[in-house]
């Protein structure tokens, strides 16, 4: 009898956890209530935080803008090629994400260098080639330093500012950000921890299901 009850309990538990799993991912960032004109009437509407327009150059020397990510979800991070501390760990982890989604054209990866002076198009091309990844899925971008820092700090909400005291010369957070097709942030994950990146991959699947239904 005990045994049967245990099985029942387990089943109920499973159902609950399945339900929790089907919940939508949160939309992160500050939201604003704005008055918008709708059918001639002024109505209050919620405007979510989203990634603004941008323009950077990828490892192939091609211009990469928000249009590159139209109808895509993507994972963004900030790194630099000569970083000896957390970047190699982040890249090891991001490589797992790449391997899982490289054949899915709906998923892209966007890695911004925070050391564009050193990380030129040529350096990024060599880095991507050595990592063995294709720009069909994974864009490594360089560009105007101020614009990279601005979009990192103010739009992706991650710390990526210059700090000469840190090993490697920069202070940065190691975050992976999951961005949806409306360019809204749906998750922030510690890109240096395998279990957080497992969660990211679960959430990518969840987000893909959101668009599939």
């Amino acid at each position: 009898m005990m045994y049967r009850q245990l099985v029942k309990l387990l089943l109920v538990g499973l159902l609950i956890s399945c339900n929790a799993d089907s919940e939508r991912l949160p939309i992160l960032g500050r939201k604003e209530i704005k008055n918008v004109e709708y059918d001639g009437k002024i109505k209050a509407d919620t405007v979510y935080h989203s990634i603004p327009e941008f323009s950077f150059t990828n490892q192939d020397g091609k211009e990469i803008t928000e249009a590159t990510f139209q109808d895509k979800i993507y994972i963004a991070d900030f790194f630099f090629t000569t970083c000896p501390t957390i970047c190699p760990v982040m890249k090891t982890q991001m490589l797992r994400v790449y391997e899982k989604y490289k054949d899915n054209t709906e998923v892209l990866i966007l890695s911004h260098t925070i050391d564009p002076k050193h990380d030129t198009v040529e350096v990024l091309a060599d880095f991507a080639d050595r990592l063995g990844v294709s720009s069909d899925t994974w864009h490594f971008v360089t560009g105007d330093q101020d614009k990279i820092y601005d979009i990192g700090q103010n739009s992706y909400m991650v710390t990526s500012r210059e700090d000469p005291d840190e090993p490697g010369g920069f202070l940065h957070s190691g975050a992976f950000l999951l961005i949806d097709k409306q360019r809204r942030i749906r998750g922030i994950y510690d890109g240096t921890k395998a279990d957080r990146v497992d969660q990211l991959m679960k959430d990518i699947d969840k987000l893909l299901r959101e668009y599939a239904s």
Binding site: P84, T85, P88, K91, G132
Partner: peptide, 14 residues
């Protein structure tokens, strides 16, 4: 971080 815990390195980077 670079050479990995198992010592196998990372692709052709490390």
């Amino acid at each position: 971080n670079c050479h990995q815990l198992d010592g196998k390195g990372l692709a052709r980077l490390y």
